[in-house]
Design a protein around this nucleic acid. Structure first.
Length: 364
DNA sequence: AACTTAGACAACCGCGACGAT
DNA sequence: CATCGTCGCGGTTGTCTAAGT
Protein backbone atom coordinates (compact mmCIF):
# COMPACT_ATOMS: atom_id res chain seq x y z
CA UNK A 1 0.00 0.00 0.00
CA UNK A 2 1.47 3.24 -1.06
CA UNK A 3 1.73 6.37 0.93
CA UNK A 4 -1.18 8.71 0.79
CA UNK A 5 -0.49 11.86 -1.17
CA UNK A 6 0.30 14.91 0.90
CA UNK A 7 -2.75 16.53 -0.56
CA UNK A 8 -5.67 15.69 -2.73
CA UNK A 9 -4.66 15.60 -6.31
CA UNK A 10 -7.95 17.12 -7.36
CA UNK A 11 -8.48 20.74 -6.47
CA UNK A 12 -4.84 21.43 -5.85
CA UNK A 13 -3.35 24.14 -7.94
CA UNK A 14 -0.03 23.56 -9.63
CA UNK A 15 2.34 25.67 -11.61
CA UNK A 16 3.71 29.14 -11.05
CA UNK A 17 2.66 31.04 -7.99
CA UNK A 18 0.80 34.27 -8.41
CA UNK A 19 1.66 37.41 -6.43
CA UNK A 20 -1.63 37.04 -4.59
CA UNK A 21 -0.69 33.59 -3.43
CA UNK A 22 2.73 34.81 -2.44
CA UNK A 23 1.26 37.58 -0.36
CA UNK A 24 -1.14 35.25 1.35
CA UNK A 25 1.62 32.82 2.16
CA UNK A 26 4.02 35.50 3.37
CA UNK A 27 1.45 37.15 5.57
CA UNK A 28 0.46 33.81 7.04
CA UNK A 29 4.04 32.88 7.78
CA UNK A 30 4.72 36.26 9.27
CA UNK A 31 1.88 35.68 11.63
CA UNK A 32 2.49 32.06 12.47
CA UNK A 33 6.06 31.43 11.49
CA UNK A 34 7.24 28.77 9.10
CA UNK A 35 6.52 25.19 9.95
CA UNK A 36 3.43 23.07 10.33
CA UNK A 37 3.15 23.19 6.58
CA UNK A 38 0.38 20.68 6.64
CA UNK A 39 -1.98 23.28 8.03
CA UNK A 40 -0.92 26.10 5.76
CA UNK A 41 -3.25 25.34 2.82
CA UNK A 42 -6.28 24.90 5.03
CA UNK A 43 -5.49 27.92 7.18
CA UNK A 44 -4.79 30.24 4.29
CA UNK A 45 -7.24 28.91 1.79
CA UNK A 46 -4.47 28.47 -0.69
CA UNK A 47 -5.23 25.76 -3.19
CA UNK A 48 -1.72 24.45 -2.89
CA UNK A 49 -0.34 21.40 -1.22
CA UNK A 50 1.77 21.81 1.87
CA UNK A 51 4.91 20.81 0.07
CA UNK A 52 4.36 23.43 -2.54
CA UNK A 53 3.90 26.07 0.16
CA UNK A 54 7.04 25.04 1.94
CA UNK A 55 9.03 24.99 -1.27
CA UNK A 56 7.74 28.37 -2.31
CA UNK A 57 8.76 29.80 1.03
CA UNK A 58 12.18 28.21 1.30
CA UNK A 59 13.19 28.75 -2.29
CA UNK A 60 11.63 32.03 -3.07
CA UNK A 61 9.87 34.03 -0.42
CA UNK A 62 12.12 33.44 2.55
CA UNK A 63 13.86 36.64 3.59
CA UNK A 64 17.53 36.99 3.00
CA UNK A 65 17.59 35.16 -0.28
CA UNK A 66 20.04 36.67 -2.67
CA UNK A 67 19.11 36.49 -6.30
CA UNK A 68 20.87 37.29 -9.47
CA UNK A 69 24.27 36.34 -10.74
CA UNK A 70 26.57 34.30 -8.60
CA UNK A 71 29.74 36.08 -7.63
CA UNK A 72 33.11 34.62 -8.35
CA UNK A 73 33.51 34.03 -4.65
CA UNK A 74 30.29 32.07 -4.48
CA UNK A 75 31.20 30.15 -7.59
CA UNK A 76 34.48 29.08 -6.08
CA UNK A 77 32.79 28.08 -2.87
CA UNK A 78 30.34 25.93 -4.79
CA UNK A 79 33.05 24.32 -6.85
CA UNK A 80 35.07 23.35 -3.86
CA UNK A 81 32.22 22.39 -1.63
CA UNK A 82 30.74 20.22 -4.36
CA UNK A 83 34.07 18.55 -4.71
CA UNK A 84 34.10 17.84 -1.01
CA UNK A 85 30.44 17.15 -0.33
CA UNK A 86 29.11 15.89 -3.61
CA UNK A 87 25.57 16.74 -4.63
CA UNK A 88 24.45 17.57 -1.13
CA UNK A 89 22.96 20.84 -2.15
CA UNK A 90 21.36 21.58 1.16
CA UNK A 91 24.70 21.09 2.85
CA UNK A 92 26.43 23.28 0.31
CA UNK A 93 23.73 25.89 0.70
CA UNK A 94 24.45 26.03 4.39
CA UNK A 95 27.77 27.62 3.52
CA UNK A 96 26.09 30.17 1.28
CA UNK A 97 23.37 31.49 3.54
CA UNK A 98 21.98 33.84 0.95
CA UNK A 99 21.47 31.14 -1.66
CA UNK A 100 18.96 28.35 -1.68
CA UNK A 101 19.87 24.77 -2.35
CA UNK A 102 17.64 24.90 -5.39
CA UNK A 103 19.48 27.92 -6.71
CA UNK A 104 22.82 26.31 -6.19
CA UNK A 105 21.66 23.08 -7.73
CA UNK A 106 20.34 24.88 -10.77
CA UNK A 107 23.46 26.94 -11.12
CA UNK A 108 25.59 23.87 -10.86
CA UNK A 109 23.59 22.00 -13.47
CA UNK A 110 23.45 24.86 -15.92
CA UNK A 111 26.82 26.52 -15.49
CA UNK A 112 29.37 24.85 -13.31
CA UNK A 113 28.81 21.31 -14.52
CA UNK A 114 29.54 22.50 -17.99
CA UNK A 115 32.76 24.07 -16.88
CA UNK A 116 33.77 20.95 -15.05
CA UNK A 117 33.07 18.84 -18.11
CA UNK A 118 35.16 21.12 -20.23
CA UNK A 119 37.99 20.70 -17.81
CA UNK A 120 37.52 16.95 -17.69
CA UNK A 121 37.78 16.58 -21.45
CA UNK A 122 41.16 18.12 -21.24
CA UNK A 123 42.16 15.92 -18.36
CA UNK A 124 41.53 12.43 -19.64
CA UNK A 125 45.18 11.58 -19.37
CA UNK A 126 45.20 12.78 -15.83
CA UNK A 127 42.22 10.62 -14.97
CA UNK A 128 43.75 7.51 -16.44
CA UNK A 129 46.40 7.90 -13.82
CA UNK A 130 44.36 9.14 -10.92
CA UNK A 131 41.24 6.98 -11.11
CA UNK A 132 41.11 4.58 -8.26
CA UNK A 133 41.02 0.95 -9.42
CA UNK A 134 37.98 -1.10 -8.50
CA UNK A 135 40.09 -3.75 -6.89
CA UNK A 136 41.79 -1.40 -4.49
CA UNK A 137 41.64 -2.47 -0.87
CA UNK A 138 39.93 -0.39 1.73
CA UNK A 139 43.17 0.48 3.47
CA UNK A 140 44.72 1.53 0.22
CA UNK A 141 41.65 3.51 -0.64
CA UNK A 142 41.69 5.35 2.64
CA UNK A 143 45.35 6.20 2.34
CA UNK A 144 44.76 7.32 -1.18
CA UNK A 145 41.81 9.36 -0.05
CA UNK A 146 43.85 11.02 2.64
CA UNK A 147 46.54 11.88 0.17
CA UNK A 148 44.00 13.20 -2.27
CA UNK A 149 42.43 15.36 0.38
CA UNK A 150 45.76 16.88 1.22
CA UNK A 151 46.46 17.49 -2.42
CA UNK A 152 43.02 18.86 -3.03
CA UNK A 153 43.35 21.13 -0.06
CA UNK A 154 46.57 22.52 -1.33
CA UNK A 155 45.01 22.95 -4.71
CA UNK A 156 42.09 24.78 -3.18
CA UNK A 157 44.38 27.21 -1.50
CA UNK A 158 46.23 27.81 -4.71
CA UNK A 159 43.07 28.08 -6.73
CA UNK A 160 41.55 30.51 -4.33
CA UNK A 161 44.49 32.77 -3.97
CA UNK A 162 43.97 36.18 -5.47
CA UNK A 163 47.08 36.02 -7.58
CA UNK A 164 46.35 32.64 -9.06
CA UNK A 165 42.73 32.41 -10.05
CA UNK A 166 41.23 29.00 -10.45
CA UNK A 167 41.61 27.69 -13.96
CA UNK A 168 38.12 26.34 -13.66
CA UNK A 169 36.85 29.81 -13.32
CA UNK A 170 38.83 31.66 -15.87
CA UNK A 171 37.44 30.39 -19.10
CA UNK A 172 33.98 31.75 -18.86
CA UNK A 173 34.46 34.45 -16.35
CA UNK A 174 33.74 37.03 -18.95
CA UNK A 175 30.50 35.41 -19.85
CA UNK A 176 29.41 34.93 -16.28
CA UNK A 177 30.44 38.39 -15.37
CA UNK A 178 28.05 39.84 -17.86
CA UNK A 179 24.62 40.82 -16.85
CA UNK A 180 21.93 38.27 -17.43
CA UNK A 181 19.94 38.64 -20.56
CA UNK A 182 16.84 38.24 -18.54
CA UNK A 183 15.64 41.69 -17.59
CA UNK A 184 14.32 40.29 -14.37
CA UNK A 185 17.79 39.57 -13.22
CA UNK A 186 18.91 43.08 -13.81
CA UNK A 187 16.47 44.28 -11.29
CA UNK A 188 16.66 41.43 -8.90
CA UNK A 189 20.39 41.35 -8.56
CA UNK A 190 20.29 43.81 -5.72
CA UNK A 191 17.05 42.87 -4.12
CA UNK A 192 15.76 40.19 -1.89
CA UNK A 193 12.22 41.02 -2.61
CA UNK A 194 11.66 39.04 -5.69
CA UNK A 195 7.96 39.34 -5.31
CA UNK A 196 7.89 43.06 -5.69
CA UNK A 197 10.20 43.12 -8.64
CA UNK A 198 8.49 40.32 -10.40
CA UNK A 199 5.14 41.90 -9.89
CA UNK A 200 6.32 45.05 -11.53
CA UNK A 201 8.34 43.62 -14.31
CA UNK A 202 6.07 40.91 -15.49
CA UNK A 203 2.99 42.97 -15.69
CA UNK A 204 2.44 41.79 -19.21
CA UNK A 205 3.06 38.16 -18.49
CA UNK A 206 0.63 35.60 -17.30
CA UNK A 207 2.50 35.32 -14.04
CA UNK A 208 1.59 38.70 -12.73
CA UNK A 209 -2.04 39.38 -12.26
CA UNK A 210 -3.66 42.76 -12.26
CA UNK A 211 -2.29 45.49 -10.11
CA UNK A 212 -5.79 46.05 -8.78
CA UNK A 213 -5.90 42.55 -7.38
CA UNK A 214 -2.62 42.98 -5.62
CA UNK A 215 -3.60 46.34 -4.26
CA UNK A 216 -6.84 44.93 -2.95
CA UNK A 217 -5.06 42.10 -1.25
CA UNK A 218 -2.48 44.37 0.23
CA UNK A 219 -5.06 46.77 1.55
CA UNK A 220 -7.03 43.94 3.02
CA UNK A 221 -3.95 42.60 4.62
CA UNK A 222 -2.94 45.96 5.99
CA UNK A 223 -6.34 46.41 7.61
CA UNK A 224 -6.17 43.18 9.51
CA UNK A 225 -2.50 43.45 10.25
CA UNK A 226 -1.78 43.31 13.97
CA UNK A 227 0.88 45.94 13.53
CA UNK A 228 -1.82 48.47 12.84
CA UNK A 229 -3.00 48.02 16.35
CA UNK A 230 -1.51 49.87 19.26
CA UNK A 231 0.38 46.84 20.46
CA UNK A 232 1.09 44.01 18.15
CA UNK A 233 -0.27 40.63 19.11
CA UNK A 234 2.40 38.98 17.05
CA UNK A 235 5.64 38.32 18.83
CA UNK A 236 7.31 38.28 15.48
CA UNK A 237 6.06 41.71 14.68
CA UNK A 238 7.24 42.94 18.03
CA UNK A 239 10.65 41.54 17.53
CA UNK A 240 10.68 42.88 14.05
CA UNK A 241 9.85 46.34 15.31
CA UNK A 242 12.42 46.12 18.03
CA UNK A 243 15.18 45.35 15.66
CA UNK A 244 14.00 47.72 13.00
CA UNK A 245 16.22 50.61 13.86
CA UNK A 246 19.20 48.39 14.27
CA UNK A 247 18.76 46.73 10.95
CA UNK A 248 17.64 49.63 8.90
CA UNK A 249 20.54 49.43 6.54
CA UNK A 250 19.87 45.84 5.75
CA UNK A 251 16.23 46.56 5.40
CA UNK A 252 16.84 49.26 2.91
CA UNK A 253 18.75 46.83 0.81
CA UNK A 254 16.40 43.98 1.25
CA UNK A 255 12.91 45.23 1.40
CA UNK A 256 12.64 48.79 0.37
CA UNK A 257 11.85 47.38 -3.00
CA UNK A 258 8.38 47.24 -1.61
CA UNK A 259 8.13 50.70 -3.04
CA UNK A 260 8.13 49.01 -6.39
CA UNK A 261 5.08 46.97 -5.65
CA UNK A 262 3.48 49.92 -4.00
CA UNK A 263 4.07 51.96 -7.08
CA UNK A 264 2.60 49.21 -9.17
CA UNK A 265 -0.41 48.72 -7.01
CA UNK A 266 -1.13 52.26 -6.01
CA UNK A 267 -1.08 51.29 -2.38
CA UNK A 268 0.21 53.78 0.12
CA UNK A 269 3.80 53.21 1.13
CA UNK A 270 3.03 54.53 4.57
CA UNK A 271 0.78 51.61 5.37
CA UNK A 272 2.03 50.23 8.61
CA UNK A 273 0.68 46.86 7.71
CA UNK A 274 2.47 46.84 4.45
CA UNK A 275 5.59 47.94 6.17
CA UNK A 276 5.23 45.06 8.50
CA UNK A 277 4.68 42.62 5.72
CA UNK A 278 8.08 43.45 4.37
CA UNK A 279 9.74 44.01 7.66
CA UNK A 280 11.66 40.78 7.37
CA UNK A 281 15.30 41.15 6.84
CA UNK A 282 18.33 39.05 7.17
CA UNK A 283 18.34 39.59 10.89
CA UNK A 284 14.71 39.35 11.78
CA UNK A 285 14.32 36.51 9.37
CA UNK A 286 15.84 34.27 11.93
CA UNK A 287 13.15 34.99 14.44
CA UNK A 288 10.68 32.27 13.95
CA UNK A 289 9.17 29.98 16.45
CA UNK A 290 10.44 26.50 16.51
CA UNK A 291 7.97 23.72 16.76
CA UNK A 292 8.56 23.38 20.45
CA UNK A 293 8.83 27.05 21.18
CA UNK A 294 5.90 28.40 19.28
CA UNK A 295 3.39 27.24 21.81
CA UNK A 296 5.08 29.31 24.46
CA UNK A 297 5.45 32.28 22.24
CA UNK A 298 9.18 31.96 22.42
CA UNK A 299 11.25 32.82 19.42
CA UNK A 300 14.84 32.17 18.94
CA UNK A 301 17.40 33.57 16.64
CA UNK A 302 17.59 30.64 14.36
CA UNK A 303 16.48 30.54 10.80
CA UNK A 304 14.18 27.65 10.19
CA UNK A 305 15.83 26.43 7.07
CA UNK A 306 19.34 27.71 7.48
CA UNK A 307 21.46 26.67 10.39
CA UNK A 308 23.33 29.24 12.32
CA UNK A 309 26.53 30.10 10.61
CA UNK A 310 28.57 29.25 13.59
CA UNK A 311 26.93 25.93 14.25
CA UNK A 312 28.54 22.87 12.87
CA UNK A 313 27.94 22.34 9.22
CA UNK A 314 27.74 19.01 7.40
CA UNK A 315 31.48 18.69 7.49
CA UNK A 316 31.40 19.21 11.21
CA UNK A 317 33.57 22.25 10.83
CA UNK A 318 32.48 25.72 11.90
CA UNK A 319 31.71 27.76 8.84
CA UNK A 320 34.02 30.56 9.74
CA UNK A 321 36.84 28.11 10.10
CA UNK A 322 36.12 26.28 6.91
CA UNK A 323 35.58 29.39 4.88
CA UNK A 324 38.80 30.76 6.21
CA UNK A 325 40.43 27.54 5.24
CA UNK A 326 38.87 27.61 1.80
CA UNK A 327 39.65 31.20 1.14
CA UNK A 328 42.71 31.98 3.16
CA UNK A 329 45.63 32.48 0.83
CA UNK A 330 48.05 31.48 3.49
CA UNK A 331 46.47 28.11 4.10
CA UNK A 332 47.44 28.31 7.71
CA UNK A 333 44.12 27.71 9.39
CA UNK A 334 43.90 24.68 11.60
CA UNK A 335 44.64 22.35 8.77
CA UNK A 336 44.94 19.33 10.98
CA UNK A 337 41.67 19.98 12.74
CA UNK A 338 39.85 20.32 9.46
CA UNK A 339 41.56 17.26 8.12
CA UNK A 340 40.18 15.27 10.99
CA UNK A 341 36.68 16.51 10.32
CA UNK A 342 36.96 15.89 6.62
CA UNK A 343 38.34 12.44 7.01
CA UNK A 344 35.59 11.52 9.40
CA UNK A 345 32.97 12.80 7.02
CA UNK A 346 34.37 11.51 3.79
CA UNK A 347 35.25 8.11 5.08
CA UNK A 348 31.58 7.55 5.75
CA UNK A 349 30.61 8.58 2.28
CA UNK A 350 30.02 5.82 -0.21
CA UNK A 351 30.91 7.89 -3.20
CA UNK A 352 33.74 9.65 -1.54
CA UNK A 353 36.06 8.78 -4.36
CA UNK A 354 33.89 10.77 -6.73
CA UNK A 355 34.17 13.79 -4.51
CA UNK A 356 37.87 13.45 -4.14
CA UNK A 357 38.08 12.92 -7.84
CA UNK A 358 36.28 16.16 -8.41
CA UNK A 359 38.46 17.82 -5.86
CA UNK A 360 41.48 16.42 -7.59
CA UNK A 361 40.41 18.27 -10.68
CA UNK A 362 41.43 21.36 -8.88
CA UNK A 363 44.97 20.20 -8.91
CA UNK A 364 45.50 21.14 -12.50
C1' DA B 1 6.90 38.45 -38.40
C1' DA B 2 6.78 33.64 -37.36
C1' DC B 3 8.93 29.74 -35.88
C1' DT B 4 12.58 27.06 -33.58
C1' DT B 5 16.04 26.33 -30.25
C1' DA B 6 18.57 26.86 -26.09
C1' DG B 7 19.24 28.65 -21.58
C1' DA B 8 17.62 29.76 -17.06
C1' DC B 9 14.88 29.13 -13.36
C1' DA B 10 10.71 27.69 -10.80
C1' DA B 11 8.16 23.96 -9.38
C1' DC B 12 6.99 19.08 -8.90
C1' DC B 13 7.75 14.27 -7.56
C1' DG B 14 9.41 10.46 -5.06
C1' DC B 15 11.99 8.86 -1.44
C1' DG B 16 14.29 8.73 2.97
C1' DA B 17 14.89 10.59 7.64
C1' DC B 18 13.02 11.62 11.79
C1' DG B 19 9.94 12.44 15.55
C1' DA B 20 5.56 11.33 17.76
C1' DT B 21 2.50 7.92 19.30
C1' DC C 1 9.75 -1.79 18.58
C1' DA C 2 6.46 -0.76 14.94
C1' DT C 3 3.69 2.38 12.59
C1' DC C 4 2.31 6.73 10.93
C1' DG C 5 2.66 11.51 9.60
C1' DT C 6 5.46 15.30 8.37
C1' DC C 7 9.34 17.46 6.61
C1' DG C 8 13.46 18.02 3.86
C1' DC C 9 16.38 16.70 0.07
C1' DG C 10 17.83 15.68 -4.58
C1' DG C 11 16.58 14.58 -9.23
C1' DT C 12 13.74 15.77 -12.81
C1' DT C 13 10.38 18.18 -15.47
C1' DG C 14 7.84 22.23 -16.96
C1' DT C 15 7.59 26.95 -18.26
C1' DC C 16 9.14 31.21 -19.77
C1' DT C 17 12.13 34.19 -22.35
C1' DA C 18 15.65 35.62 -25.44
C1' DA C 19 18.39 34.59 -29.34
C1' DG C 20 18.82 32.67 -33.75
C1' DT C 21 17.04 31.45 -38.33
Amino acid sequence: MGRLPCCDKAGVKKGPWTPEEDIILVSYIQEHGPGNWRSVPTSTGLLRCSKSCRLRWTNYLRPGIKRGNFTEHEEKMIFHLQALLGNRWAAIASYLPERTDNDIKNYWNTHLKKKLRQQQTGLEGFYKVSRIPQSITKGQWERRLQTDIHMAKRALCEALSVDTPSPLLTQQDTKLGTVSKDPFHHASANTDNHLAVRSCETSSSTYASSAENIARLLKGWAKRSPVNQSSSSSPLSTLSAQTKSETRTTQENSFDNRSSIVAATGSSSSDAGFDSLFSFNSSTAHMFPTKSDSANGCYRLQDESKPSLETLNPLGVPLSLLEKWLLDDNCGVSAQAIDDHLMRDLSLDDDGDDHVEAASLLLQ
